[in-house]
């Protein structure tokens, strides 16, 4: 059991891959934004890769362990300390009953994952413990952690001293600039040739108006192909309007002139085009970047995006643990 002394900034229970199968009712999957780090944290403590853990973002929580446990921290460095002693990232650590884990502001990266042997055992909603804050679903009675919460944890048998190989860790950059893969489509043909080139060559700044629903980007104006302006009226009045359609997770959704990457808690449908989509294996970069940082988009094929996801799945296995 984890007692929440300080909640941090919207620290939430998440599992992987989240709440799948309810997209046609408007439910997003939720789940960890950097599932690469998340899965490895679970492996370190002997859990299945998808078991529920904590996603800590920007400012981590302070937690008191009510019983002995084995934990692991991965992803962003939040300068975690256990009873004042630094806790290494990417390594499983034994904690004793009564010890306090204190996490601070994220240094390198943005999201830090805490896995605990046995996994967090909150009530599952529609098959998942992932928190979907906006609708009050999952997590701790539908919300992020709050001071005084006691987070239930299942029995587990973790082993301390296990580490993730250096080569198997996501290369979290501190240079403020990320190269993020995208696939063209579904609606790339609504953007003219110049607009497509501009998208792929420009610097896109991550706006502070970003959250687990959408990542807003600031950059140059978009220009459109003739089909965006010459269309039946039920599409809507803006060039980027289209008859409401389903949104892929990761879609770069063009709301007027503002591109918004639809991430884990994003909407399932709406009336804007999606010229590009960020593939699943590039989501960790979104999860580890901060507002103000720059994205450069690199176009890859669907087959390449699928190969990236396979490679990441292969990394998120026992073979990466020493």
């Amino acid at each position: 059991m984890l007692e929440v002394l300080k909640p941090g900034l919207e620290t939430s229970v998440q599992d992987y891959p989240g709440r799948i199968g309810y997209w046609n009712q408007g439910f997003p999957p939720s789940g960890p934004m950097d599932s690469w780090s998340f899965r490895l944290a679970n492996l370190l403590v002997g859990n299945a890769v998808g078991d529920a853990g904590l996603e800590c973002q920007y400012m981590g929580p302070t937690l008191k362990f009510q019983r002995a446990a084995v934990i692991a921290l991965t992803g962003a460095d939040m300068g975690a300390k256990l009873d004042g002693q630094p806790v290494p990232l990417w390594t499983s650590v034994a904690v004793q009953a009564g010890q306090v884990l204190e996490m601070g502001a994220a240094r390198a990266g943005t999201r830090c994952y805490l896995a605990i042997a046995g996994g967090i055992a909150t009530e599952a909603w529609l098959g998942s413990r992932s928190t979907f804050h906006q609708a009050g679903v999952g997590g701790m009675n539908g919300s992020a952690l709050k001071t005084g919460h006691v987070v239930p944890v299942a029995e587990g048998h973790g082993v301390a001293g296990r580490s993730v190989k250096e080569t198997a860790r996501p290369p979290i950059v501190t240079g403020k600039r990320w190269v993020v893969e995208v696939c063209a489509g579904p609606n790339d043909d609504w953007i003219d040739e110049a607009g497509q080139q501009r998208f792929l060559s420009a610097d896109w700044k991550l706006s502070s108006k970003s959250n687990r629903t959408g990542f807003r980007l600031e950059g140059p104006e978009w220009t459109f192909a003739p089909k965006a302006t010459n269309k039946p009226p039920e599409h809507g009045s803006l060039p980027s309007n289209i008859i409401d359609h389903g949104y892929p997770l990761g879609a770069i959704n063009l709301a007027g002139q503002t591109p918004i990457i639809l991430v884990n808690d994003g909407p399932s449908m709406g009336g804007f085009i999606n010229p590009y989509t960020v593939p699943s294996a590039a989501f960790w970069k979104l999860g580890q970047s901060k507002p103000g940082e720059i994205y450069n988009f690199k176009q890859i094929s669907v087959a390449e995006a699928q190969a990236m996801a396979r490679a990441m799945k292969a990394i998120c296995t026992e073979s990466s643990i020493v």
Partner: peptide, 10 residues
């Protein structure tokens, strides 16, 4: 038929 990343088709 249009692709949406590695896991979606519209």
């Amino acid at each position: 038929y249009m692709p949406g990343g590695d896991r979606y088709m519209l």
